[in-house]
Design a protein around this nucleic acid. Sequence first.
DNA 1: TTATTTGCAAAGGCTTTGCCTCGGA
DNA 2: TCCGAGGCAAAGCCTTTGCAAATAA
Lengths: 143, 143
Amino acid sequence: MPSRLEELCVKKGLKMTDQRRVISRVLSEATDHPDVEEVHRRASAIDPRISIATVYRTMRLFEEAHVIDRLDFGDGRARYEEARTDHHHHLIDVDSGEVIEFTNDEMERLKESIASELGYDLIGHRLELYGVPRKRRADKSES
Amino acid sequence: MPSRLEELCVKKGLKMTDQRRVISRVLSEATDHPDVEEVHRRASAIDPRISIATVYRTMRLFEEAHVIDRLDFGDGRARYEEARTDHHHHLIDVDSGEVIEFTNDEMERLKESIASELGYDLIGHRLELYGVPRKRRADKSES
DNA sequence: TTATTTGCAAAGGCTTTGCCTCGGA
DNA sequence: TCCGAGGCAAAGCCTTTGCAAATAA
């Protein structure tokens, strides 16, 4: 059965090849934020007839069709996730690399308000928080 | 006379060479957020005996000494500014490329609060807004 | 069929690095 | 003097692209 992303692509009029179907599926099934190499790895496991160049081309295609979002966690390579309607952000656990998603209405309101005060209409934004798990007890003893 | 950045570097115990002095000066005098190539261009104008490799090495050195901050506006290359004590963010005018700096106490509070709710201590964050100048009048006629 | 897409390998953009010479303290 | 810094060019990493063969509609 077609993945959610594949159906979206078809709806957008994208020509669907075997490769694009596999990549759609990989992205639909992902619960993390894979980079291109990781998408290629997962796609290859399903169908080895897929080159990294095609993955790059497909990610760009999907991004331009707004069916996926490109993320940048500051490590020099692009990460991806299925496009979503909610405005959400990411908190990166710098110890484990884990990415926690969150939404925050006040944040949405605030950034609109900031842009507005500066005389701008907002067309995009990026917010990432980098943190470490909070210690249970207040121990300032640890360096 | 030494630039503000040069004095800071000395205070941090960095060995100051002619190249580093020139780069310090360029960064201290900058009111924008130059990338490495631009820093190299400006430095070369002062003293041509400066290679791009040295600029890269120096930017990294300065960054690690926390006398400059590295910025990422999502265009695939690093931008820099003198380190500052205030937490400020950037609004990028996507029409002109102009970068507007802003500070916002509510934002500072909010991100701490979000991290805290998720069980994290914040050690860093990034926020950039991308916008276009707001039209004076509400005209929805323009595409 | 026929315009697209893919694979492969080469190239591109930004950044780092090896190596040897130069230079600051 | 002596260890670190700089210059140059090569290499590295992620990404894009030219071209010929394969393929979707």
